[in-house]
């Protein structure tokens, strides 16, 4: 694909225009700084030793780069009374997030497909009800959900969290896929029906491969939501089954001993990295999928 550097529209020129552009870039630079300084402080601090942090300014570059804090955050920092670092909790988060994202995405796709392409009486009402789920504040359902998990024998466990996240993600995933499928031509479905395919044959054979953009958006959204969730994690898990967000909180809030800012910063970055990774990897797929699958008319 050829890329043009500008849109080609004729712009005003002259000293006034140059000044305005200068002003525009100054404002943009200011905003960049505003967003990037916290990241800089985190990365810089995580690479410093404790002595350097105490001695210097928190805005200065590290004099000596050391990864000790990262190592400690990963496998030696104390989370509550246990001092194994964040590693086991990162795995908890992975074990929770991956199935929850996968299940909620595939069910959302099925919902959206059924709601748009296999219309049934009351489909709109059902969609409205599902959509309503997107507006329920999560605090409201903490108690009933705790009781439900207890009844199911899933209280305080990772599978319990998977269930919670799947159920509360469905509103969003259904919305995403429903809005995508509504734009898919019914003719394709009719052709597939004449071709002899049934509900699942069309879903897996035709519709799902077409919905890569929707899948990517949903996966990024769901992964970010579930990985970053703190409320359900702290409410429905205990100790060893905590997700990394809860563990991070416990690392930072450990009140015994010296405050290790470098370890805290490293731990925070570790907890945040996976969402960034998913965004970059899935985003790349997204762009490629858009240009490869583009069908006009």
């Amino acid at each position: 694909m050829r890329r043009r550097r500008t849109s080609g529209i004729v712009r005003p020129s002259g000293p006034g225009a140059v000044m305005l552009r200068g002003l525009l870039f100054a404002v943009l630079a200011l905003f960049c700084l505003y967003y990037l300084v916290p990241l800089f402080v985190m990365v810089a601090t995580s690479l410093k030793s404790l002595e350097e942090i105490r001695a210097g300014s928190f805005l200065s570059l590290p004099r000596e780069i050391t990864f000790d804090a990262w190592g400690k955050a990963w496998n030696a920092a104390c989370v509550g009374v246990r001092c194994d670092g964040l590693e086991p909790y990162v795995w908890n988060s992975v074990l929770m997030t991956v199935p929850a994202v996968a299940i909620s995405t595939i069910l959302g796709a099925l919902n959206g497909y059924a709601l748009t392409k296999w219309r049934f009486p009351g489909a709109d009402i059902i969609f409205a009800l599902i959509l309503f789920g997107a507006f329920i504040p999560f605090q409201v359902i903490l108690l009933p959900m705790a009781r439900t998990l207890g009844q199911l024998g899933l209280a305080g466990s990772v599978p319990g969290l998977i269930l919670v996240h799947t159920v509360y993600g469905l509103a969003f995933t259904t919305l995403f896929f429903r809005n995508f499928f509504i734009g898919v031509s019914d003719g394709i479905l009719q052709a597939a029906k004449v071709d002899g395919a049934g509900f699942f044959g069309i879903f897996f054979g035709i519709v799902l491969p077409m919905s890569l953009p929707a899948i990517v958006v949903t996966v990024i959204w769901q992964f970010t939501q579930i990985w970053n969730d703190f409320l359900f994690g702290v409410a429905f898990t205990v100790g060893d089954s905590n997700p990394v967000t809860v563990a991070l909180n416990n690392v930072v809030n450990t009140s015994t001993g010296v405050k290790e800012y470098n370890v805290d910063m490293a731990a925070a970055i570790i907890a945040g990295l996976p969402t960034l990774l998913v965004y970059v990897v899935a985003g790349a797929y997204f762009v490629r999928g858009l240009s490869a699958g583009a069908v006009k008319g």
């Binding site: 031509s185 003719g187 394709i188 009719q190 052709a191 597939a192 004449v194 071709d195 002899g196 395919a197 044959g201 054979g205 035709i206 491969p209 077409m210 699958g293 069908v295």
Partner: peptide, 24 residues
């Protein structure tokens, strides 16, 4: 049936488009 919009399966190759009905 032949449709006005052609209704081809966008993610399948021409060959897969043609054989889909026979596959099912």
């Amino acid at each position: 049936m032949v449709f006005q919009s052609y209704a081809l399966y966008p993610t399948k190759t021409v060959r897969q488009n043609i054989t889909f009905g026979m596959e099912t």
